[in-house]
Structure formats: structure tokens, C-alpha cells
Amino acid sequence: MIHLSNIEKVYRTKTIETIALNNINLNINKGEFVAIMGPSGCGKSTLLNIMGLLDAPTRGSIVMDDQQVTALSRKKLALFRNLKLGFIFQSYHLINDLSVIDNVELPLLYRKGISGTERRKRALEALEKVGLSARTKHYPNQLSGGQRQRVAIARAIIGNPEIILADEPTGNLDSAMGEEVMNLMLHLNKTDGTTIVMVTHDELMAKKTQRVIHFFDGQQVS
């Protein structure tokens, strides 16, 4: 599903060169739930950004869903992200001026051929899946952290992506809420067969996934 070969990411300023990722080779299979762990600054989020096509590697190639995506134009990358990827972030990244249902609909706004009625129907279904169908008209600042993350999950799954990339999705939640969100992702992985790559610091959460990859100083260590 995701094949990373010889990935290297170097950040350069006039005086300093920082190697964020060094020769990463990684294969993630379809339907797999993988956790990426490692200390802060080890390159986990950089890797997730590269997998999410938000950042280009300095060197190496990325094949996703049998498609070489390294050299795609910004427009094609946007389309690929929209069709194939779902994102969940530690700090939810909901738009405060939009209602819950409008936030969930967001990815479908950029997908051609979907009517407003269809968008609304699918947003309601996604909110149903995360147990928030009663909160459609609320605004993000009227919700708890756990509820916000569930809205973010609904937004990530509305487009039926094949891959979900989650950057510390439970990092801002208490253990009970974190558990709830984790169970939701496990459920998605099990029932829909969605491939999930999750960056986390929480070993308990990581243990619930099928594979844990450890990073240290920009390199994969296990």
C-alpha cells in the first residue's frame, strides 16, 4: 500500500544542514494498522508529512496504491490526498467558524461530482459512525476534546480513504477519551479495512496496533 524507498529529508539553512530522515525504507501493507514511535525530534512527524504528500523528500521515492507519487504536480497531489488519504491531528485542526457538519463535509467540497445533498448525507453517516450525530449544528468550541477528535475522525473517513494518517491523535486527550478514540480507529481498521499509520508517544496505544516501528535520530531502528 505504502512503499518508501531510500527516503531522505534534509532541512537546509544558510549555515546549518539538518538531516530529519536518513535512508528510510518502509513498506506498509493494505489494511495494516501501524504505530510509529520515537522520541521528540526523531523525524516521526516529518515521515508522516512525507507519507501524507504534504512535504517532498529530498531524496527517495514514494509509491502509494501502486502509484509513483514523488513527482506529481501540486494539483495532482491535492487530488490524490483528497481521494486516498484521511488525516487526524493531535490538535484536531477543526475550523472554528464552521459547524461540526460543515467541518466534516470539508474534504468532499474538493471532490468533483458530489452534490450538496450527497455531502450532507455522507457527513451525517460519518458523524453517526463516531457517535456525534446529535452535535451536527454545534461549533468546535462547544465540544470537549474527545468530541472534537471524533469530529476530526469523521472528517477523515467521510471520503472513504484507503489510508488514514494520524499524528498523535490521543496526545491531547485524557486516558478515557484517548481510549475511546483509539477504539474508534481500531474499529475502522477492522470493519472498513482502512490502512492506518499512527504516530504516537503512548506505548499502550501503540501496543494495540499490528506493528510498531521505532525511530531514532531520523532513522528506523526497528
Binding site: R74, F87, H93, I95, L106, P107, L109, R111
Partner: peptide
């Protein structure tokens, strides 16, 4: 800016 970044991540092209 954060909203713009989010929209791009969700699939908005530069033209969008």
C-alpha cells in the same frame, strides 16, 4: 493560515 493549510491537506488545489 492554519485553515488554508488544513484545506490544502483535505485536498484543495492551489486553484481551489
Amino acid at each position: 493560515k492554519a485553515e488554508i493549510g488544513l484545506r490544502v491537506i483535505m485536498g484543495a488545489s492551489p486553484a481551489d
